[in-house]
Simulated assay, not measured.
Amino acid sequence: MFKNPDKAPKTYTPAEALPKIAAYCAYQERTQKEVADKLRSYGLDEDEAGEIIIRLSREKLLDEERYAQAYARGKHRTNGWGRRRIRLEMKAKGLSDYCIKSGLKELDGDEYYQKMQQLLGQRDAREKENHPQKRRMKLTAYLVQKGYESDLIQEALKELEQ
């Protein structure tokens, strides 16, 4: 679908924007930054957007700590991301350090390590490199790119080689 460049985006009053943005927040967890951007796209100024964000937070429709927890769980389980990558991505989304720490607490240590071992096993099965050192370097690079910690990677590689 192409948008008509001549047509101006529809603007809303705060009263009209509130039910729309409430539905937007109810659909899935959002950050305050995402909601503020959406409200600005509705033509609201900073003060009006701020008031709506405060109201949504009071009504528990907008909760960045809950967002961080869901984000960390989801990215780890579905994308196989490690703590380092999740932390960087949440930082880029403008979440506070408190929310980031809260989100990372959601990752169970055993499940986290098992997921990393699963990814390592899958990558090892696909890896074509036969030279042991080069193969180890490629597997390490893959897990580092996924955001896993070096000490855990080395431990998992030792287990794999045994």
Rank of each mutant, 00 (worst) to 15 (best):
S96E: 00
W81T: 00
A26C: 05
L139H: 05
R123K: 13
R66P: 05
N79C: 03
R85M: 03
R30T: 06
Y12Q: 03
Y27A: 13
V144L: 10
R85Q: 06
A17S: 05
L39P: 01
R77N: 08
D151S: 12
K60W: 10
E106N: 11
S41T: 09
T13G: 11
F2N: 13
R30C: 04
I52Y: 01
R123V: 00
I54E: 14
T140W: 01
H131R: 15
S150M: 14
S57P: 08
E106V: 11
D124R: 11
R66M: 10
S102V: 07
T31S: 08
E34R: 08
A17L: 02
T13W: 08
C25W: 06
Y142I: 05
Y148I: 10
D6C: 12
L157R: 04
D97A: 13
H131N: 15
R136K: 15
R126L: 15
S41L: 05
P9K: 01
R85G: 00
A72D: 03
I52A: 01
A36C: 09
L107I: 13
K128T: 13
I21P: 01
H76E: 13
M116L: 14
A125F: 01
A156N: 08
D110A: 12
Q122L: 12
A92H: 14
K33V: 09
M116V: 07
K158I: 05
Q69F: 04
K158D: 10
E48H: 06
R73S: 14
A15K: 14
R126G: 10
Y98L: 10
T11L: 05
N4C: 08
Y24D: 02
R87N: 09
E89G: 09
Y27T: 08
S150I: 14
